[in-house]
Design a protein around this nucleic acid. Structure first.
Lengths: 133, 133
DNA sequence: CTCCTTTATAAGTTCACACTTATATTAATC
DNA sequence: GATTAATATAAGTGTGAACTTATAAAGGAG
């Protein structure tokens, strides 16, 4: 996997950019404005994020006059999905699992009885055996 | 999105852990050994990575004597897939796109004529209009 | 109980990366 | 051609995160 993709997706600002572009193409300026409101970051910062997204193949650019119109590039997303799908296969999980409802249903059910699982324990010292609290 | 997931997936070491666990459950020691060979990192480093994966809901743990057996947690993966799938929907891209061959085919085709696209330019200065070269 | 094994945490260091300000580059307008 | 608008790059700074070594905690074996 050309790790660049998940590396790019790892940043909350960049995920917001994608969500924004998910609503439709936008010039760099509009993206910068939106992120300035939401995250309080500068135009160059946004431009740098856009570069990362470009190099990861997650967005496309189209020049229009002095504007640069950005849009989602489904190629990068497909790459990420491919990688995740490998696990779905390995665990005999049907592709349907990708459909929101099903997946969410399962997740909520498991979170419900998460009692015997371990996730973000209090502030305690939890060594090897980990028979939590 | 509980960003922790993509944040966790962003690290190559952690992705390798998941790939490893994709082949079957393994005790922490085995994981540490495998990563020491491949990345040359220490046992505590691996333990810390495992914690991140746990908190992201990407792996499960089961205690067995003094050993802690790790496995893939499909919940976290489902979360990531849900998020990515939102875009797939938004762009009327059939779920088939997840199947490796199709997706790869499309990707390679686009990379082929990437001439007019912009991705990791040489060492040149490429301002707004970006009419490369 | 003592010792060994297994795994997690503590504390500290180092480096990448996200941000900043300043500036370069191009297109459009006057 | 000068000016303005839109966007990218340059250079520098600070913080987080990934690593290190040292150690704690717990189970199993003697």
């Amino acid at each position: 996997m050309s790790g660049e993709v998940f590396d790019a997706l790892g940043d909350p600002v960049r995920r917001r950019v994608l969500e924004l572009l998910g609503e439709g193409e936008r010039p760099a300026g509009a993206i910068a404005a939106a992120l300035r409101d939401r995250f309080g970051i500068s135009q160059p910062a946004v431009s740098q994020h856009l570069r990362v997204l470009r190099e990861a193949g997650l967005v496309t650019v189209r020049t229009e006059g002095t504007r640069r119109i950005y849009g989602v590039d489904t190629d990068g997303l497909a790459l990420a999905q491919e990688w995740l799908a490998r696990f779905a296969d390995a665990f005999a999980q049907p592709l349907d699992a990708l459909e929101t409802e099903l997946a969410r249903g399962r997740r909520e059910r498991r979170l419900a009885d998460a009692a015997d699982r371990e996730r973000r324990p209090p502030v305690q010292r939890r060594p090897p055996g980990a028979a939590a609290g």
